[in-house]
Design a protein around this nucleic acid. Structure first.
Lengths: 250, 250
DNA sequence: TGCAATTCGCTCAAGAATAATCAAAATCAA
DNA sequence: TTGATTTTGATTATTCTTGAGCGAATTGCA
């Protein structure tokens, strides 16, 4: 019995029973426990199951994964807080941009029932809003599988064809002095493209990202009009941004 | 016993049993294990089977082991047969179009390991191939939530910017006399856009769609070069298409 | 909190499967 | 037929997988 076959059996068992034990599986598949443990570790790494002591559990979204769901768990209360505020800024009939940040993704749940037009380059966002009131326009171009989003030259050009009322964007780092910075060039390109086509640019960033500089600086602070952040943000820091004409929502 | 014959037997065995071992096949075909291994390697490279240590598995079982159980897609046997044939027409380095038909979607599992460039307007296809060897380019534009695909003017324009070697498309109806027909205008637009930008157009259609006319006729038969269909197709009907210069693969 | 019982991951070794290489056989073209 | 090409088989070195032992970590129970 080889790994793919065991994998199939394990998945099926987990799916049926909700949770399984290592012993149980070893007995069922007629192999050693250490082998099962190794299988479970590998499968958990792929997000197919949830590993527990002594066994494994079914993970809700694992089969049809928007793997994004796991990543968003970090700082999730803060992110939800931010998104709730951001959602209040969106009115019926608005045309908005959303990029592919993990914070921005959580905005989806708060805008499901708004009748708005959305332009995005994020695949999880599109999936999330497929059956909603929101009319979605997807940016075309090269798919970046790691970020589950569309980036590149063609994507930027696509964005340039639209004009929106508001852009809701994430960023890796932001500082009052040096402006916006990112880990990757392509993400920065998309941020710029959307920002330049929007009447108002909203940065959704939890307080940990304030006054942090990442390696690639790509825009001055003047690119944005609003920062939406959480209540853990230092008031003195926020004042820095206000002085430079940025509206703070928190 | 030559390769094509062995291939046929191997495919049939894998299809029946789900998974097989090298030894088993060597015994069955009365040849050496090394030969079987070579056959399996070649077939796996074409995406016809999933290679495991010590044997091979059905592609579907290995790719999404669980969905398989509950998902009783219409005509799935025939569709897999068609897609397996279609996959063999795709070479490393090819640039291909795929549209959003349900048959075309099943092609995904057979091309996961091919190093090719794909341009598609189908969201399920993109999701399916996110973590694969395939480089995906997504067509941008209005998202049609019912069809889970991108359609419309902008989408067609996007397609027009690319040139591909082959297009793999679905269609609602096809007849030797009247050509291609569809249920919806927007889908027809996408089909036309892709077909006109491809060197060779492959229609993937199970035999039930042959000689069927749907309400919206949108292109003559000359638009396409190849029809890939299943073995239930009536030979006399196929002859009609051959007479009109269409290559038949089945 | 502390202790005992599992459970875990790491490393090592044995065995199986594989890829690589080369020789023999079969096939094909002229 | 001869020579070239392809296919097949055998051998060997390498890689992959599995299972066991052992110390470390985690859990459950008192």
């Amino acid at each position: 019995m080889n790994f793919p076959n065991r994998k199939r059996i394990i998945l099926q068992t987990v799916e049926e029973k909700g949770s399984v034990e290592v012993k149980e599986l070893a007995e069922l598949i007629q192999t050693s426990e250490i082998t099962i443990r190794r299988d479970l570790t590998a499968m958990a790494a792929d997000g197919l199951i949830y590993r527990t002591h002594g066994g494994a559990m079914k993970v809700g979204l694992a089969i049809n994964p928007v793997q994004f769901a796991n990543k968003t768990a970090v700082n999730s209360e803060n992110k939800d807080y931010i998104c709730r505020l951001a959602a209040q800024e969106i009115n019926e009939g608005d045309i908005i941009f959303m990029d592919c940040g993990s914070t921005v993704f959580r905005l989806c749940q708060f805008i499901r029932n708004k009748r708005i037009q959305l332009i995005t380059n994020s695949l999880p966002v599109v999936n999330e809003l497929l059956d909603s009131e929101v009319k979605v326009n997807l940016v075309g171009g090269e798919v970046d599988s790691k970020r589950q989003a569309v980036h590149g030259l063609i994507a930027n050009e696509h964005v340039a064809r639209y004009r929106a009322h508001k852009a809701f964007l994430g960023v890796d780092g932001i500082s009052a002095q040096h402006g916006l910075s990112a880990h990757s060039e392509s993400e920065a390109g998309m941020t710029l493209a959307m920002a330049s086509q929007a009447d108002a640019v909203y940065m959704l960033c939890d307080s940990t990202k304030l006054e942090k500089d990442k390696y690639f600086h790509f825009a001055p602070l003047s690119l944005i009009q609003v920062i939406v952040t959480d209540q853990a943000a230092n008031p003195d820091v926020l004042e820095l941004y206000r002085e430079r004409g940025v509206r703070i929502v928190n």
